[in-house]
Design a protein around this nucleic acid. Structure first.
Length: 493
RNA sequence: CGGGGUGUAGCGCAGUCCGGUUAGCGCACCUGCUUUGGGAGCAGGUGGUCGUGAGUUCGAAUCCCACCACCCCGACCA
């Protein structure tokens, strides 16, 4: 049932070109006049808004509240936590002046040299520093804890090479920043949010993820422990889809944030931070979509159902529209989002192709023939199949179909991941297998040196040390030294 | 920052090697008629500082020089 979509590169020909084409053709985003920064178009933004709405609901359900901290961070703040600076210093945008003026030698504007800032400002690459500097003033006693705050924001990381959604200089995200009285509570928070992310990815986005810990070299700059969810894309490469960090007392110490405990002793506060970004859009696209275009899970589709009328004349159009309006009302009553495309400027064939490209989960076509027979044509995007269904009870039928599609695309992704995941015990075999992509479960001696050697020789990295994987010990595939459990290797985005 | 490539209509390209009418094609767009169950057909039409600047020449999209922008590959990364 494959059909050529205009100018959409096939995945087999060039996977990354397919991705680029799809983002553009499906109207999700485009490159902007600013190098490395994207414009997120309405259709793409609608998907992001659905992600936001659900995540926001989940954060609030777990006791978090939203707040907003500044875009700019004084340079001195960033340098207070040693590892943190090192991690981010190389990719910061810096504000040095606060005024422009007319160029005295010609037309146009120049930076006014008189307007140099006393202290330069960094455009936030992440907000730990400004937030912990603020928390110092908010926390005195254990009674002030915990603080469970999230913010929805944009951040800037000056990347050399960018790709729409996957890596852009500016991106949208949420960052949670929590403060706790005990180490145990902070670790529990970091783990809790990891599970929120995993739950969201799997049950809402239909993207299966591994839950795990990062190795030391992949850890967030300034964290004691980084938890992550890792997804597998259709080209066999891994994508980090979300991270949650246990920050220990590192930022509390750097910003002198202490509290008085019940025993009247001063202690440093324990911290976490956690985030997911518009990168999730990339994960969504590369997990489900095919050579005909985007495939969206019903939970994230800007509209779940599109209805295309088929008619030869004004009279037929009116008759079809009347029936369609009845269906629309019934579907909306069930909370299903529907678009009735009654645009007369485009032909049905064009609409079919267009909505396929945009990944609308269910498409209905209704014409004179259907009115006569009391039927409707139902096409599902995930399987590209069509069937004629009775108009009677169509709304329940579609409600069930949407659930089925949501479950089906998750299962499909899960099966793919299972087929691409295997245990490898020798380094020679590893070098062969890594070329085929996928997750390789291997024993590793736990040292950064071995990890680095593998990365240099094969471009594969440890994606995570799985939380609920096989805990059987073994020996490192490279050095033969003891290994506590298998870890997950892959080439990654 | 290294290596490669590309700049011609909104988009995709031809023309450049070998200088010479009015710079061309497809898509899109506009008008009209016929169409409408998988990206409609025909007819007519609109739209160009040929990336920028300076040169060679009677004459430059085409040749020379400089610059700029973007893309791909590497080093960096959620």
């Amino acid at each position: 049932m494959k059909k050529e979509i205009k100018e959409l590169t096939s995945r087999d020909v060039d996977y990354s070109q397919w991705y680029n084409d799809l983002v553009i053709k499906a109207d999700l985003a485009e490159n902007s006049a600013v190098r490395g920064c994207m414009v997120i178009k309405p259709y793409g933004y609608a998907i992001w808004e659905k992600m936001q709405a659900e995540l926001d609901r989940m954060f609030k359900e777990t006791g978090h509240v939203n707040a907003y901290f500044p875009l700019f961070i004084p340079k001195s703040f960033l340098s207070k936590e040693a590892e943190h600076v090192e991690g981010f210093a190389k990719e910061c945008a810096v504000v040095t002046h606060h005024r422009l003026k007319q160029d005295p030698d010609g037309l146009g504007l120049i930076v006014d040299p008189e307007a140099k800032l006393e202290e330069e400002l960094i455009v936030r690459p992440t907000s730990e520093t400004i937030i912990w500097n603020t928390y110092r003033n908010w926390i005195q006693s254990y009674r002030d804890l915990p603080i469970l705050i999230n913010q929805w924001a944009n951040v800037v990381r000056w990347e050399m090479r960018t790709r729409l959604f996957l890596r852009t200089a500016e991106f949208l995200w949420q960052e949670g920043h929590t403060a706790h009285a005990t180490e145990k509570e902070a670790i529990e928070e970091a783990e809790k949010m990891l599970h929120v992310y995993a739950d969201f990815a799997e049950n809402f986005m239909a993207v299966p993820v591994l839950r795990g810990l990062k190795s030391a070299s992949e850890r967030f700059a300034g964290a004691i422990e980084t938890y992550c969810i890792e997804a597998l894309m259709q080209d066999g490469k891994a994508l980090q889809a979300g991270t949650s960090h246990f920050l220990g007392q590192n930022f509390a110490k750097a910003f002198d944030v202490t509290f008085v405990n019940k025993e009247n002793q001063q202690e440093h506060v324990w911290a976490t931070s956690w985030g997911v970004s518009t990168r999730l859009m990339g994960a969504l696209i590369m997990t489900h979509s095919d050579d005909n275009g985007l495939v969206l899970p019903p939970n994230l589709a800007p509209y779940q159902v599109v209805i295309v009328p088929i008619y030869r004349n004004e009279e037929q159009f009116r008759a079809v529209s009347e029936k369609v309006n009845e269906i629309v009302t019934k579907l909306r009553a069930l909370g299903i989002s529907v678009k009735y495309d009654d645009n007369d400027q485009k032909k049905p064939g064009w609409k079919f192709a267009e909505y396929e490209l945009k990944g609308v989960p269910v498409r209905l076509a209704i014409g004179a023939r259907d009115l006569e027979n009391g039927t409707v044509e139902v096409a599902r995007r995930d399987t590209l199949t069509k069937e004629i269904v009775s108009m009677e009870g169509i709304e329940e039928y579609i409600q069930n179909l949407l659930k089925e599609i949501q479950a089906n695309i998750f299962q499909k992704a899960l099966d793919y991941r299972a087929s691409m995941t295997r245990e490898v015990d020798s380094y020679d075999e590893f070098k062969v297998e890594i070329e085929k992509g996928g997750f390789l479960l291997c024993h590793w001696d736990g040292t950064p040196e071995t990890e680095e050697k593998i990365k240099e020789e094969t471009k594969a990295t440890i994606r995570c040390i799985p939380l609920n994987g096989d805990k059987t010990p073994g020996v490192c595939m490279v050095t033969g030294k003891p290994s506590a459990q298998r870890v997950v290797f892959a080439r990654a985005y």
